[in-house]
Amino acid sequence: MERVLFLGHTGENGELGRAALEALHAAAGLAEELGCAFDAGLVGADVQKAANNIGSCGASSFFAVSGVDFAEARYGSDVLAAEALCRKSGATIVIAAGTSRWMRVLAGAALRLGGRIDTHATALGAGQGAVSISRWYYRQRMEAQLSRAVRPWIIVLEPGSAPAWQGEEKAAALVDVPVEVTDAAKRTSFAGYRAPQASEQTIRPDAELLFVAGAGWTKKQADGNIHIEEASKLILDFMHKSNASLGSSKSLVDLQGEGQAVLPFLTHLNQIGQTGATPRHAKGFATCCHGEEPHVVGWRFINERRAVNTNPNCGWAQGKADVLYVADAFAVMAKVNELLS
């Protein structure tokens, strides 16, 4: 008989983030499908509030590893917490969200537990009684359905792959799981967060729109010249007005390291596609992109997609975008900005 454990950690507000609630939804659903019990395991400085928020989720137990040692993400202490929660629950299937905090430690925890791990899972189910998952390989270019015999099996769910759990708040009875954090595990200390040094905050994961600036912005235009300043102004204007998140194609980001003409506010963190992020937004708007990177890989999780490109035969946009506008992006964006004013 399987036993499912949902693992969650608190965010800066002491609550579970959206990705965690998605993982909880998936875990509860799987337990129901399997007809087995499931537990919740929570990690954070103080997890009572988070536990109460999900108190009505149906978990058999709410296990907690909490205290100052667990306030912030750190491999040494988090791996101990994850390991202890899994052991306490005795779960065979462990489900967590693919947050940076869990992605850092859960592979290590799986190894300590003698189990296995799969990350970037997008779906899970228990058809015919056997648990199987779908997950990505080759950076979102291939999707596999697989199952495993080894337990415990930690499944890290890609954010955005399941609906977030919703339910009534209810006081949860926490079962404290003591974890001793040795000095060796505390060699690392948290020293804060740093936002990108760019003057603009251009990455907004919660934005409705992803605006993709392709390498074409930095190429010679019809007059034979490069217009970086104009391109920068148009894009930043649009970012202000649309509140979009900004993505860039690989080539554009790589140019930066080479001292080439580039849009000055782009960093590696903006990069989407094969070697960048694969963000999730309701809408995607690609400009001056040509090639597989933005359209095929970077757009995997964009619902509505439109592109502006001067090449009507762009085989990358065709079949990938809903609408391809064959036009000069400089002119189009200037007018779009004017209309948005």
């Binding site: 993400a73 750190r74 947050t99 940076s100 905090r101 060699r187 690392t188 200390s189 948290f190 020293a191 804060g192 967060y193 740093r194 936002a195 990108p196 905050q201 251009t202 990455i203 907004r204 994961p205 963190l269 903006n270």
Partner: peptide, 11 residues
């Protein structure tokens, strides 16, 4: 880490 930020840690 999330939100286009970096977590700073000292080891």
């Amino acid at each position: 880490v999330e939100g286009g930020r970096h977590q700073v840690s000292k080891c």
